[in-house]
Design a binder for these strands. Sequence first.
DNA 1: CGGCGTCTTGACAAAATTCAACGCCTGTGG
DNA 2: CCACAGGCGTTGAATTTTGTCAAGACGCCG
Lengths: 271, 271
Amino acid sequence: MNMTQPLSSCSNCGLHELCIPTDLSADDLKRLDQLVYARRKLCRGEELYRAGDQFGAIYSIRSGSFKKEVALEDGRQQVIDFLMSGDVLGMDGIGTDRYSCNAVALEDSVVCVIPFVRLEAISREVRGLQHQFHRVMGREMVRHQAVKMLLGGARAGERVAAFLLTLSRRFEERGYSASEFILRMNREDIGSFLGIQLETVSRVLSQFHRDNLVAVMQKYIRILNAPGLRHVAGSMGEAQPATTAKALLAVSLPAHQDTKRAASKVSALGA
Amino acid sequence: MNMTQPLSSCSNCGLHELCIPTDLSADDLKRLDQLVYARRKLCRGEELYRAGDQFGAIYSIRSGSFKKEVALEDGRQQVIDFLMSGDVLGMDGIGTDRYSCNAVALEDSVVCVIPFVRLEAISREVRGLQHQFHRVMGREMVRHQAVKMLLGGARAGERVAAFLLTLSRRFEERGYSASEFILRMNREDIGSFLGIQLETVSRVLSQFHRDNLVAVMQKYIRILNAPGLRHVAGSMGEAQPATTAKALLAVSLPAHQDTKRAASKVSALGA
DNA sequence: CGGCGTCTTGACAAAATTCAACGCCTGTGG
DNA sequence: CCACAGGCGTTGAATTTTGTCAAGACGCCG
Protein backbone atom coordinates (compact mmCIF):
# COMPACT_ATOMS: atom_id res chain seq x y z
CA MET A 1 0.00 0.00 0.00
CA ASN A 2 1.56 3.20 -1.16
CA MET A 3 -1.16 5.17 -2.81
CA THR A 4 -1.18 8.92 -2.93
CA GLN A 5 -4.57 10.55 -2.79
CA PRO A 6 -5.02 13.94 -4.45
CA LEU A 7 -7.44 15.42 -1.94
CA SER A 8 -5.99 18.04 0.35
CA SER A 9 -7.12 21.02 2.34
CA CYS A 10 -5.06 22.70 5.00
CA SER A 11 -7.51 25.40 5.90
CA ASN A 12 -9.81 22.99 7.66
CA CYS A 13 -7.27 20.49 8.90
CA GLY A 14 -7.75 19.54 12.51
CA LEU A 15 -4.07 19.65 13.23
CA HIS A 16 -3.82 23.42 12.91
CA GLU A 17 -1.65 24.49 15.81
CA LEU A 18 0.54 21.45 15.66
CA CYS A 19 1.25 21.43 11.98
CA ILE A 20 2.27 24.18 9.65
CA PRO A 21 -1.00 26.12 9.36
CA THR A 22 -1.60 29.10 11.60
CA ASP A 23 -4.02 31.99 11.87
CA LEU A 24 -4.14 33.72 8.52
CA SER A 25 -6.35 35.88 6.37
CA ALA A 26 -8.90 34.19 4.13
CA ASP A 27 -6.76 35.10 1.19
CA ASP A 28 -3.70 33.51 2.70
CA LEU A 29 -5.67 30.42 3.50
CA LYS A 30 -6.30 29.83 -0.17
CA ARG A 31 -2.58 29.93 -0.75
CA LEU A 32 -2.04 27.53 2.07
CA ASP A 33 -4.17 24.90 0.49
CA GLN A 34 -1.62 24.76 -2.29
CA LEU A 35 0.95 23.59 0.18
CA VAL A 36 -0.09 20.00 0.30
CA TYR A 37 0.67 18.14 -2.84
CA ALA A 38 -1.10 14.98 -1.80
CA ARG A 39 -1.85 12.65 1.03
CA ARG A 40 -0.12 9.39 1.37
CA LYS A 41 -1.19 6.34 3.29
CA LEU A 42 1.34 3.94 4.75
CA CYS A 43 0.87 0.58 6.34
CA ARG A 44 2.58 -0.47 9.52
CA GLY A 45 6.25 -1.09 8.88
CA GLU A 46 6.28 0.77 5.60
CA GLU A 47 8.95 3.38 5.02
CA LEU A 48 8.04 6.94 4.12
CA TYR A 49 11.61 7.68 3.12
CA ARG A 50 15.04 6.22 3.58
CA ALA A 51 18.40 7.66 4.54
CA GLY A 52 20.13 8.85 1.40
CA ASP A 53 16.97 9.43 -0.60
CA GLN A 54 16.84 12.69 -2.47
CA PHE A 55 15.10 15.28 -0.32
CA GLY A 56 12.07 16.90 -1.84
CA ALA A 57 9.27 17.20 0.64
CA ILE A 58 8.45 17.31 4.29
CA TYR A 59 5.49 15.45 5.67
CA SER A 60 2.91 16.39 8.22
CA ILE A 61 1.53 13.39 10.04
CA ARG A 62 -2.22 13.43 9.69
CA SER A 63 -2.82 10.23 11.58
CA GLY A 64 -0.74 7.39 12.92
CA SER A 65 2.81 7.43 14.18
CA PHE A 66 6.36 6.91 13.00
CA LYS A 67 9.84 6.21 14.18
CA LYS A 68 12.98 7.64 12.69
CA GLU A 69 15.97 5.34 12.70
CA VAL A 70 19.47 5.10 11.31
CA ALA A 71 21.07 1.89 10.14
CA LEU A 72 24.22 0.83 11.96
CA GLU A 73 25.23 -1.44 9.09
CA ASP A 74 25.61 -4.45 11.31
CA GLY A 75 21.97 -4.72 10.50
CA ARG A 76 20.92 -3.12 13.75
CA GLN A 77 18.96 0.09 13.70
CA GLN A 78 19.22 2.94 16.11
CA VAL A 79 15.95 4.71 16.78
CA ILE A 80 16.40 8.46 17.04
CA ASP A 81 12.86 9.72 17.27
CA PHE A 82 9.20 8.88 17.67
CA LEU A 83 6.63 11.08 15.99
CA MET A 84 2.87 11.29 16.07
CA SER A 85 0.00 13.17 14.47
CA GLY A 86 0.72 16.82 13.91
CA ASP A 87 4.45 16.27 13.94
CA VAL A 88 6.49 17.02 10.87
CA LEU A 89 8.71 14.43 9.25
CA GLY A 90 11.54 14.89 6.82
CA MET A 91 13.18 18.04 8.08
CA ASP A 92 16.34 15.99 8.45
CA GLY A 93 16.71 16.28 4.70
CA ILE A 94 16.77 20.05 4.52
CA GLY A 95 20.39 20.52 5.45
CA THR A 96 21.97 18.25 2.89
CA ASP A 97 19.26 17.62 0.29
CA ARG A 98 19.21 13.99 1.32
CA TYR A 99 17.25 12.45 4.12
CA SER A 100 19.50 11.40 6.95
CA CYS A 101 17.42 8.58 8.39
CA ASN A 102 14.60 6.17 7.66
CA ALA A 103 11.06 7.10 8.58
CA VAL A 104 9.02 4.00 9.36
CA ALA A 105 5.30 3.83 10.14
CA LEU A 106 4.59 2.24 13.51
CA GLU A 107 0.97 1.70 12.53
CA ASP A 108 -1.18 2.44 9.52
CA SER A 109 -0.74 6.15 8.98
CA VAL A 110 -1.55 9.05 6.69
CA VAL A 111 0.74 11.95 5.94
CA CYS A 112 0.37 15.19 4.01
CA VAL A 113 3.09 15.63 1.42
CA ILE A 114 4.48 19.16 1.41
CA PRO A 115 6.96 19.78 -1.42
CA PHE A 116 9.70 21.85 0.10
CA VAL A 117 10.12 24.29 -2.78
CA ARG A 118 6.45 25.00 -2.51
CA LEU A 119 6.71 25.58 1.21
CA GLU A 120 9.58 27.98 0.67
CA ALA A 121 7.75 29.78 -2.12
CA ILE A 122 4.54 30.27 -0.19
CA SER A 123 6.31 31.19 3.02
CA ARG A 124 8.05 33.97 1.11
CA GLU A 125 4.62 35.40 0.47
CA VAL A 126 2.76 34.46 3.58
CA ARG A 127 4.63 35.80 6.53
CA GLY A 128 2.60 33.88 9.08
CA LEU A 129 3.45 30.63 7.40
CA GLN A 130 7.12 31.50 7.29
CA HIS A 131 7.18 32.21 10.97
CA GLN A 132 5.18 29.15 11.86
CA PHE A 133 7.48 26.93 9.87
CA HIS A 134 10.48 28.37 11.63
CA ARG A 135 8.82 27.74 14.94
CA VAL A 136 8.13 24.14 14.01
CA MET A 137 11.77 23.63 13.14
CA GLY A 138 12.79 25.43 16.30
CA ARG A 139 10.62 23.24 18.46
CA GLU A 140 12.02 20.15 16.83
CA MET A 141 15.50 21.32 17.72
CA VAL A 142 14.54 21.92 21.32
CA ARG A 143 13.03 18.46 21.46
CA HIS A 144 16.32 17.05 20.20
CA GLN A 145 18.12 19.02 22.86
CA ALA A 146 15.89 17.61 25.57
CA VAL A 147 16.61 14.09 24.43
CA LYS A 148 20.32 14.78 24.36
CA MET A 149 20.09 15.89 27.96
CA LEU A 150 18.26 12.74 28.86
CA LEU A 151 20.78 10.49 27.15
CA GLY A 152 23.65 12.47 28.51
CA GLY A 153 22.73 12.65 32.12
CA ALA A 154 20.11 10.16 33.19
CA ARG A 155 20.02 6.63 34.58
CA ALA A 156 17.84 3.96 33.01
CA GLY A 157 14.95 4.57 35.41
CA GLU A 158 15.02 8.29 34.79
CA ARG A 159 15.06 7.76 31.06
CA VAL A 160 12.05 5.50 31.04
CA ALA A 161 10.13 7.74 33.43
CA ALA A 162 10.84 10.79 31.30
CA PHE A 163 9.88 8.85 28.22
CA LEU A 164 6.49 7.91 29.64
CA LEU A 165 5.83 11.45 30.81
CA THR A 166 6.71 12.88 27.44
CA LEU A 167 4.41 10.43 25.70
CA SER A 168 1.70 11.25 28.19
CA ARG A 169 1.96 14.96 27.54
CA ARG A 170 2.05 14.52 23.81
CA PHE A 171 -1.05 12.34 23.84
CA GLU A 172 -2.77 14.92 25.99
CA GLU A 173 -1.84 17.74 23.62
CA ARG A 174 -3.62 15.77 20.93
CA GLY A 175 -6.77 15.30 22.92
CA TYR A 176 -6.13 11.77 24.10
CA SER A 177 -5.90 10.60 27.67
CA ALA A 178 -2.73 11.61 29.41
CA SER A 179 -2.93 8.76 31.87
CA GLU A 180 -3.76 5.83 29.67
CA PHE A 181 -2.37 4.92 26.30
CA ILE A 182 -1.00 2.23 24.06
CA LEU A 183 2.65 2.14 23.17
CA ARG A 184 3.00 1.98 19.45
CA MET A 185 6.56 0.73 19.55
CA ASN A 186 8.06 -2.39 21.06
CA ARG A 187 10.57 -2.64 23.90
CA GLU A 188 13.48 -2.90 21.56
CA ASP A 189 12.61 0.39 19.88
CA ILE A 190 12.17 2.09 23.23
CA GLY A 191 15.49 0.78 24.41
CA SER A 192 17.21 1.81 21.23
CA PHE A 193 15.77 5.28 21.49
CA LEU A 194 16.66 5.65 25.17
CA GLY A 195 20.10 4.18 24.82
CA ILE A 196 19.47 1.13 26.98
CA GLN A 197 18.77 -2.54 26.36
CA LEU A 198 15.29 -3.85 25.89
CA GLU A 199 15.73 -6.01 28.98
CA THR A 200 16.50 -2.94 31.00
CA VAL A 201 13.36 -1.25 29.71
CA SER A 202 11.38 -4.25 30.76
CA ARG A 203 12.96 -4.39 34.20
CA VAL A 204 12.39 -0.71 34.85
CA LEU A 205 8.77 -0.91 33.79
CA SER A 206 8.27 -3.88 36.07
CA GLN A 207 9.83 -1.95 38.91
CA PHE A 208 7.57 1.02 38.23
CA HIS A 209 4.64 -1.36 38.24
CA ARG A 210 5.67 -2.80 41.59
CA ASP A 211 5.95 0.73 42.94
CA ASN A 212 2.47 1.51 41.68
CA LEU A 213 3.74 4.29 39.50
CA VAL A 214 2.24 2.81 36.36
CA ALA A 215 0.16 -0.17 35.38
CA VAL A 216 1.89 -2.02 32.60
CA MET A 217 0.21 -4.64 30.49
CA GLN A 218 2.44 -5.19 27.52
CA LYS A 219 1.86 -2.16 25.36
CA TYR A 220 -0.95 -0.80 27.43
CA ILE A 221 0.20 1.83 29.91
CA ARG A 222 -1.76 3.53 32.63
CA ILE A 223 -0.04 6.18 34.65
CA LEU A 224 -1.06 5.80 38.27
CA ASN A 225 1.17 8.32 39.96
CA ALA A 226 2.36 11.07 37.70
CA PRO A 227 4.02 13.15 40.42
CA GLY A 228 5.90 10.06 41.52
CA LEU A 229 7.03 9.46 37.96
CA ARG A 230 8.16 13.04 37.62
CA HIS A 231 10.06 12.56 40.83
CA VAL A 232 11.85 9.56 39.41
CA ALA A 233 12.50 11.34 36.15
CA GLY A 234 14.10 14.12 38.12
CA SER A 235 15.31 17.00 36.09
CA MET A 236 14.56 15.28 32.82
CA GLY A 237 10.88 14.83 33.49
CA GLU A 238 9.04 17.53 31.68
CA ALA A 239 11.05 20.39 30.41
CA GLN A 240 8.78 22.05 27.93
CA PRO A 241 9.47 25.65 28.96
CA ALA A 242 12.95 25.60 30.36
CA THR A 243 14.27 23.46 33.16
CA THR A 244 12.70 21.62 36.03
CA ALA A 245 14.11 20.26 39.23
CA LYS A 246 16.35 17.33 39.96
CA ALA A 247 18.38 18.89 42.65
CA LEU A 248 16.69 18.16 45.91
CA LEU A 249 16.54 14.45 45.25
CA ALA A 250 20.19 14.12 44.48
CA VAL A 251 20.75 14.53 48.20
CA SER A 252 18.54 11.59 49.05
CA LEU A 253 19.55 8.26 50.51
CA PRO A 254 22.22 6.23 48.74
CA ALA A 255 19.72 3.60 47.59
CA HIS A 256 19.53 0.25 49.32
CA GLN A 257 20.91 -3.03 48.13
CA ASP A 258 18.54 -4.95 45.93
CA THR A 259 16.19 -2.09 45.22
CA LYS A 260 16.52 0.11 42.19
CA ARG A 261 17.36 3.74 42.63
CA ALA A 262 13.99 4.49 41.18
CA ALA A 263 12.28 2.53 43.88
CA SER A 264 14.08 4.21 46.70
CA LYS A 265 13.17 7.60 45.37
CA VAL A 266 9.59 6.58 45.18
CA SER A 267 9.33 5.16 48.64
CA ALA A 268 10.77 8.39 49.91
CA LEU A 269 7.92 10.14 48.22
CA GLY A 270 5.16 7.87 49.36
CA ALA A 271 3.29 6.33 46.50
CA MET B 1 33.31 43.32 28.68
CA ASN B 2 30.07 43.42 26.79
CA MET B 3 30.45 46.07 24.16
CA THR B 4 28.56 46.02 20.91
CA GLN B 5 30.34 47.45 17.94
CA PRO B 6 28.31 48.97 15.13
CA LEU B 7 30.53 47.89 12.27
CA SER B 8 29.22 45.08 10.15
CA SER B 9 29.49 43.73 6.66
CA CYS B 10 28.31 40.34 5.58
CA SER B 11 29.22 40.61 1.95
CA ASN B 12 32.91 40.34 2.67
CA CYS B 13 32.80 38.13 5.73
CA GLY B 14 35.23 35.27 5.61
CA LEU B 15 32.75 32.83 7.04
CA HIS B 16 30.62 32.79 3.91
CA GLU B 17 29.75 29.16 3.34
CA LEU B 18 29.52 28.37 7.00
CA CYS B 19 27.36 31.22 8.11
CA ILE B 20 24.19 32.63 6.65
CA PRO B 21 25.57 34.38 3.54
CA THR B 22 25.58 32.59 0.23
CA ASP B 23 26.12 33.40 -3.41
CA LEU B 24 23.88 36.28 -4.31
CA SER B 25 23.52 39.11 -6.77
CA ALA B 26 25.24 42.39 -5.99
CA ASP B 27 21.87 43.88 -5.24
CA ASP B 28 21.03 41.15 -2.79
CA LEU B 29 24.36 41.57 -1.13
CA LYS B 30 23.47 45.11 -0.17
CA ARG B 31 20.38 43.79 1.53
CA LEU B 32 22.42 41.17 3.28
CA ASP B 33 24.57 43.73 4.97
CA GLN B 34 21.49 44.92 6.78
CA LEU B 35 21.25 41.55 8.44
CA VAL B 36 23.79 42.14 11.11
CA TYR B 37 22.73 44.63 13.67
CA ALA B 38 26.06 44.73 15.43
CA ARG B 39 29.01 42.75 16.59
CA ARG B 40 29.45 41.76 20.15
CA LYS B 41 32.60 40.77 21.94
CA LEU B 42 32.51 38.36 24.86
CA CYS B 43 35.20 37.37 27.28
CA ARG B 44 35.86 33.83 28.30
CA GLY B 45 33.13 32.61 30.60
CA GLU B 46 30.72 35.35 29.66
CA GLU B 47 27.19 34.42 28.68
CA LEU B 48 25.75 35.48 25.35
CA TYR B 49 22.25 34.60 26.48
CA ARG B 50 20.61 32.57 29.18
CA ALA B 51 17.82 30.02 29.24
CA GLY B 52 14.53 31.83 29.60
CA ASP B 53 15.72 35.10 28.10
CA GLN B 54 13.39 36.62 25.55
CA PHE B 55 14.41 35.49 22.09
CA GLY B 56 15.23 38.23 19.64
CA ALA B 57 18.29 37.41 17.64
CA ILE B 58 20.49 34.63 16.45
CA TYR B 59 24.24 34.96 16.47
CA SER B 60 26.85 33.97 14.01
CA ILE B 61 30.17 33.21 15.64
CA ARG B 62 32.80 35.35 14.00
CA SER B 63 35.67 34.16 16.15
CA GLY B 64 36.08 32.11 19.29
CA SER B 65 33.95 29.27 20.58
CA PHE B 66 31.00 28.58 22.83
CA LYS B 67 29.26 25.88 24.75
CA LYS B 68 25.53 25.58 25.20
CA GLU B 69 24.41 24.22 28.54
CA VAL B 70 21.27 23.73 30.55
CA ALA B 71 21.09 24.12 34.30
CA LEU B 72 20.06 21.06 36.26
CA GLU B 73 19.07 23.17 39.24
CA ASP B 74 21.17 21.17 41.60
CA GLY B 75 23.73 23.66 40.42
CA ARG B 76 25.21 21.27 37.92
CA GLN B 77 25.14 22.15 34.25
CA GLN B 78 24.68 19.79 31.39
CA VAL B 79 26.56 20.71 28.25
CA ILE B 80 24.52 20.08 25.12
CA ASP B 81 26.68 21.55 22.41
CA PHE B 82 30.00 23.04 21.44
CA LEU B 83 30.13 25.65 18.72
CA MET B 84 32.89 27.40 16.86
CA SER B 85 33.42 30.11 14.27
CA GLY B 86 30.86 30.08 11.51
CA ASP B 87 28.32 28.23 13.64
CA VAL B 88 25.05 29.86 14.49
CA LEU B 89 23.92 30.33 18.07
CA GLY B 90 20.48 31.04 19.43
CA MET B 91 18.28 28.97 17.16
CA ASP B 92 17.08 27.19 20.27
CA GLY B 93 14.97 30.29 20.94
CA ILE B 94 13.01 30.22 17.70
CA GLY B 95 10.49 27.60 18.72
CA THR B 96 9.26 29.19 21.93
CA ASP B 97 10.43 32.80 21.77
CA ARG B 98 12.69 32.11 24.70
CA TYR B 99 16.17 30.70 24.62
CA SER B 100 16.26 27.18 25.99
CA CYS B 101 19.83 27.11 27.23
CA ASN B 102 22.78 29.23 28.22
CA ALA B 103 25.41 30.13 25.65
CA VAL B 104 28.79 30.60 27.29
CA ALA B 105 31.99 31.74 25.62
CA LEU B 106 34.83 29.24 26.02
CA GLU B 107 37.37 31.89 25.09
CA ASP B 108 37.27 35.54 24.11
CA SER B 109 34.90 35.61 21.16
CA VAL B 110 33.08 37.85 18.74
CA VAL B 111 29.61 37.25 17.37
CA CYS B 112 27.46 38.93 14.76
CA VAL B 113 24.03 39.84 16.10
CA ILE B 114 21.28 38.99 13.64
CA PRO B 115 17.84 40.21 14.75
CA PHE B 116 15.46 37.44 13.88
CA VAL B 117 12.67 39.63 12.51
CA ARG B 118 15.21 41.15 10.20
CA LEU B 119 16.40 37.75 9.06
CA GLU B 120 12.84 36.69 8.36
CA ALA B 121 12.08 39.92 6.53
CA ILE B 122 15.12 39.79 4.30
CA SER B 123 14.78 36.09 3.63
CA ARG B 124 11.27 36.76 2.36
CA GLU B 125 12.85 38.94 -0.28
CA VAL B 126 16.11 37.17 -0.93
CA ARG B 127 15.38 33.64 -1.85
CA GLY B 128 18.97 32.49 -1.59
CA LEU B 129 19.15 33.69 1.97
CA GLN B 130 15.94 31.95 2.87
CA HIS B 131 17.18 28.70 1.51
CA GLN B 132 20.57 29.04 3.12
CA PHE B 133 19.03 29.75 6.49
CA HIS B 134 16.87 26.68 6.21
CA ARG B 135 19.90 24.64 5.37
CA VAL B 136 21.75 25.96 8.38
CA MET B 137 18.88 24.96 10.62
CA GLY B 138 18.64 21.64 8.89
CA ARG B 139 22.30 20.91 9.36
CA GLU B 140 22.02 21.79 13.00
CA MET B 141 19.24 19.26 13.36
CA VAL B 142 21.29 16.56 11.69
CA ARG B 143 24.16 17.35 14.01
CA HIS B 144 21.82 16.91 16.95
CA GLN B 145 20.71 13.61 15.51
CA ALA B 146 24.26 12.40 15.21
CA VAL B 147 24.93 13.24 18.84
CA LYS B 148 21.78 11.45 19.90
CA MET B 149 23.03 8.37 18.12
CA LEU B 150 26.34 8.65 19.85
CA LEU B 151 24.78 9.01 23.28
CA GLY B 152 22.28 6.32 22.57
CA GLY B 153 24.50 3.62 21.28
CA ALA B 154 28.16 4.12 22.04
CA ARG B 155 30.58 3.14 24.79
CA ALA B 156 32.80 5.68 26.47
CA GLY B 157 35.76 5.00 24.19
CA GLU B 158 33.64 5.31 21.09
CA ARG B 159 32.17 8.58 22.31
CA VAL B 160 35.51 10.17 22.96
CA ALA B 161 36.94 8.94 19.68
CA ALA B 162 33.98 10.29 17.75
CA PHE B 163 34.26 13.55 19.63
CA LEU B 164 37.89 13.99 18.68
CA LEU B 165 37.21 13.13 15.07
CA THR B 166 34.34 15.56 14.88
CA LEU B 167 36.48 18.32 16.34
CA SER B 168 39.23 17.44 13.93
CA ARG B 169 36.94 17.69 10.94
CA ARG B 170 35.41 20.93 12.10
CA PHE B 171 38.80 22.51 12.62
CA GLU B 172 39.82 21.37 9.18
CA GLU B 173 36.68 22.83 7.62
CA ARG B 174 37.76 26.13 9.08
CA GLY B 175 41.25 25.97 7.71
CA TYR B 176 43.03 24.83 10.83
CA SER B 177 45.01 21.66 11.24
CA ALA B 178 42.92 18.54 11.40
CA SER B 179 45.55 16.64 13.32
CA GLU B 180 46.62 19.11 15.94
CA PHE B 181 44.48 21.41 18.03
CA ILE B 182 43.76 22.80 21.44
CA LEU B 183 40.66 21.78 23.32
CA ARG B 184 38.82 24.88 24.36
CA MET B 185 36.80 23.09 26.99
CA ASN B 186 37.85 21.17 30.09
CA ARG B 187 37.36 17.50 30.85
CA GLU B 188 34.23 18.13 32.84
CA ASP B 189 32.56 19.86 29.91
CA ILE B 190 33.56 17.08 27.57
CA GLY B 191 32.22 14.48 29.94
CA SER B 192 29.00 16.35 30.44
CA PHE B 193 28.54 16.66 26.70
CA LEU B 194 29.34 13.01 26.04
CA GLY B 195 27.29 11.69 28.90
CA ILE B 196 30.22 10.27 30.85
CA GLN B 197 32.22 11.34 33.88
CA LEU B 198 35.26 13.52 33.60
CA GLU B 199 37.36 10.72 35.08
CA THR B 200 36.22 8.45 32.30
CA VAL B 201 37.18 11.02 29.71
CA SER B 202 40.61 11.22 31.24
CA ARG B 203 41.02 7.47 31.38
CA VAL B 204 39.97 7.02 27.79
CA LEU B 205 42.32 9.73 26.59
CA SER B 206 45.15 8.12 28.51
CA GLN B 207 44.31 4.80 26.93
CA PHE B 208 44.29 6.36 23.46
CA HIS B 209 47.62 7.89 24.25
CA ARG B 210 49.06 4.54 25.31
CA ASP B 211 47.74 3.05 22.08
CA ASN B 212 49.42 5.81 20.10
CA LEU B 213 46.16 6.96 18.67
CA VAL B 214 46.58 10.49 19.91
CA ALA B 215 49.15 12.50 21.78
CA VAL B 216 47.48 14.15 24.74
CA MET B 217 49.06 16.95 26.70
CA GLN B 218 46.33 18.49 28.76
CA LYS B 219 44.32 20.51 26.29
CA TYR B 220 46.72 19.99 23.43
CA ILE B 221 45.68 17.15 21.15
CA ARG B 222 47.55 15.66 18.27
CA ILE B 223 45.90 12.93 16.30
CA LEU B 224 48.49 10.29 15.45
CA ASN B 225 46.34 7.61 13.91
CA ALA B 226 43.09 8.87 12.49
CA PRO B 227 42.08 5.58 10.87
CA GLY B 228 42.64 3.85 14.18
CA LEU B 229 40.48 6.43 15.90
CA ARG B 230 37.76 5.98 13.34
CA HIS B 231 37.99 2.29 13.95
CA VAL B 232 37.48 2.78 17.65
CA ALA B 233 34.65 5.22 17.04
CA GLY B 234 33.01 2.57 14.92
CA SER B 235 29.76 3.60 13.41
CA MET B 236 29.71 6.90 15.20
CA GLY B 237 32.97 8.12 13.82
CA GLU B 238 32.26 10.40 10.96
CA ALA B 239 28.77 10.35 9.63
CA GLN B 240 28.58 13.50 7.60
CA PRO B 241 26.74 12.03 4.63
CA ALA B 242 24.74 9.16 5.99
CA THR B 243 25.97 6.17 7.93
CA THR B 244 29.31 4.45 8.33
CA ALA B 245 30.30 1.08 9.66
CA LYS B 246 30.32 -0.38 13.12
CA ALA B 247 29.21 -3.80 12.23
CA LEU B 248 32.24 -5.90 11.65
CA LEU B 249 33.81 -4.97 14.94
CA ALA B 250 30.80 -5.90 16.99
CA VAL B 251 31.74 -9.48 16.28
CA SER B 252 35.27 -9.05 17.55
CA LEU B 253 36.85 -10.59 20.61
CA PRO B 254 35.21 -10.08 23.98
CA ALA B 255 37.96 -7.75 25.20
CA HIS B 256 40.54 -8.98 27.66
CA GLN B 257 40.67 -8.31 31.33
CA ASP B 258 42.46 -5.11 32.24
CA THR B 259 42.49 -3.64 28.77
CA LYS B 260 39.80 -1.33 27.55
CA ARG B 261 37.61 -2.33 24.69
CA ALA B 262 39.15 0.50 22.76
CA ALA B 263 42.57 -0.98 23.21
CA SER B 264 41.60 -4.42 22.05
CA LYS B 265 40.04 -2.99 18.95
CA VAL B 266 43.16 -1.06 18.23
CA SER B 267 45.58 -3.88 18.70
CA ALA B 268 43.46 -5.90 16.35
CA LEU B 269 43.99 -3.17 13.82
CA GLY B 270 47.63 -2.70 14.33
CA ALA B 271 48.51 0.83 15.35
C1' DC C 1 -4.85 -24.91 19.07
C1' DG C 2 -0.19 -24.17 18.02
C1' DG C 3 3.70 -21.44 16.68
C1' DC C 4 6.17 -17.36 17.04
C1' DG C 5 7.34 -12.95 18.17
C1' DT C 6 7.53 -10.22 22.23
C1' DC C 7 8.07 -9.55 26.93
C1' DT C 8 9.76 -10.81 31.49
C1' DT C 9 13.01 -12.48 34.78
C1' DG C 10 17.34 -14.38 36.67
C1' DA C 11 22.34 -14.98 37.06
C1' DC C 12 26.61 -13.44 35.79
C1' DA C 13 30.02 -10.32 33.51
C1' DA C 14 31.45 -5.96 31.94
C1' DA C 15 31.44 -1.11 31.99
C1' DA C 16 31.22 3.10 34.13
C1' DT C 17 30.60 5.82 38.44
C1' DT C 18 32.06 7.16 42.82
C1' DC C 19 35.29 8.35 46.21
C1' DA C 20 39.77 9.51 47.19
C1' DA C 21 44.46 10.75 46.60
C1' DC C 22 47.95 12.80 44.16
C1' DG C 23 50.55 15.39 40.48
C1' DC C 24 50.81 19.10 37.22
C1' DC C 25 50.21 23.68 35.46
C1' DT C 26 49.04 28.48 35.87
C1' DG C 27 48.77 32.63 37.62
C1' DT C 28 49.34 35.53 41.71
C1' DG C 29 51.59 37.84 45.20
C1' DG C 30 55.45 38.35 48.04
C1' DC D 1 62.15 35.27 40.55
C1' DC D 2 60.30 32.02 43.47
C1' DA D 3 56.72 29.98 46.36
C1' DC D 4 52.29 28.70 46.78
C1' DA D 5 47.36 28.19 46.13
C1' DG D 6 43.82 26.48 43.48
C1' DG D 7 41.99 24.58 39.48
C1' DC D 8 42.47 20.86 36.48
C1' DG D 9 43.85 16.42 35.16
C1' DT D 10 45.25 11.70 36.17
C1' DT D 11 45.05 7.34 38.41
C1' DG D 12 43.55 3.60 41.63
C1' DA D 13 40.14 0.72 44.20
C1' DA D 14 35.59 -0.42 45.49
C1' DT D 15 30.74 -0.21 44.16
C1' DT D 16 26.77 0.47 41.31
C1' DT D 17 24.60 0.15 37.13
C1' DT D 18 23.84 -1.83 32.98
C1' DG D 19 24.68 -5.26 29.50
C1' DT D 20 24.75 -10.11 28.18
C1' DC D 21 23.18 -14.65 27.89
C1' DA D 22 19.72 -17.85 28.71
C1' DA D 23 15.35 -19.60 29.89
C1' DG D 24 10.63 -19.35 30.29
C1' DA D 25 5.84 -16.95 30.06
C1' DC D 26 2.56 -14.49 27.65
C1' DG D 27 -0.41 -13.16 24.02
C1' DC D 28 -1.56 -12.73 19.23
C1' DC D 29 -2.50 -14.40 14.62
C1' DG D 30 -3.18 -17.73 11.53
